[in-house]
């Protein structure tokens, strides 16, 4: 009885926040490379995902914390990062004359935003505000599965469904009406590594990239974690042995 209650308490502790906002929609479950204790980001997928973000998503969605220099963390060489940055113009200044000016971006610059402000973004998107994608994987219940589900969830609406003007039907989005038109179509990008650019492939790649953008220190965290856990296991065993030895005389 007591054991069962303690187990129930532990289970409730772990489950409480999940029960709080139960997902209303069935999410496609994918085996992500970064899941689990030994899961790590797949650098090739991250680079392909960056390409999808850059060529497709970044037209409407910003990444407020992403700097060009961060791209070296997904395996792009420093020289290539410099070249990628130089393709963008950023505003700088004021100069000695007090004027703002534009110059080619440097690795230390943030990735440019698609719109100068929220109203400009709304005007360009039929009144809808495209959310910033930097934390999107952590900011949605369901995480990577949810983002992947949205990207692959566009279908024709059921016959009796009343779809709003300029809206699109999505099986995963809450309420099923999403302002974003289907962003991906086959061969939307051309992968340098020869991977076939199917919609599920691009969706998976860009989701992996967004997962990295939301939690860039995950690889470092899990690597350190394994060492810490092993150390603590040994330490705890030694503590237990010490305790047993000390107490042997007391009973």
């Amino acid at each position: 009885m007591r054991g069962a209650i303690i187990a129930a308490m532990a289970a409730l502790w772990a489950l409480a926040p999940m029960g709080a906002v139960a997902a209303e929609h069935e999410l496609p479950s994918r085996d992500w490379s970064f899941e689990g204790v030994f899961g790590r980001y797949d650098k090739a997928a991250l680079q392909r995902g960056f390409q999808v973000y850059r060529e497709v998503c970044s037209n409407c969605h910003g990444m407020r914390y992403l700097a060009f220099r961060n791209l070296t963390e997904i395996g792009i060489s420093a020289a290539d990062v410099k070249a990628i940055a130089a393709e963008y113009e950023v505003e700088d200044g004021p100069n000695d004359e007090g004027e703002m000016f534009t110059r080619p971006a440097r690795p230390s610059d943030l990735f440019p935003q698609p719109y100068p402000n929220a109203p400009a973004a709304r005007v360009a998107n039929n009144g809808a505000l495209p959310p910033d994608l930097n934390l999107i994987v952590k900011a949605r219940e369901g995480g990577a599965d949810y983002v992947y589900g949205i990207l692959t969830g566009f279908t024709d609406p059921p016959e009796d469904f009343d779809l709003g003007e300029g809206m699109n039907y999505n099986t995963v989005f809450p309420g099923n009406q999403i302002a974003m038109p289907p962003p991906l179509f086959d061969k939307a990008v051309e992968y340098a590594d020869g991977t076939e650019a199917s919609v599920p492939q691009m969706a998976a790649d860009v989701t992996e990239f967004l997962a990295w953008a939301a939690e860039p220190k995950m690889d470092e965290r899990k690597q350190l974690g394994i060492k810490v856990i092993l150390f603590l296991i040994v330490l705890t065993i030694l503590f237990y042995a010490t305790k047993r030895k000390i107490w042997a005389k007391a009973h």
């Binding site: 926040p17 709080a20 906002v21 952590k138 939301a214 965290r221 974690g225 394994i226």
Partner: peptide, 13 residues
């Protein structure tokens, strides 16, 4: 190290 956001709400991101 392995479930840092398990107890947090995704809305807070």
């Amino acid at each position: 190290f392995f479930a840092p956001d398990e107890l947090a709400s995704s809305d807070n991101y």
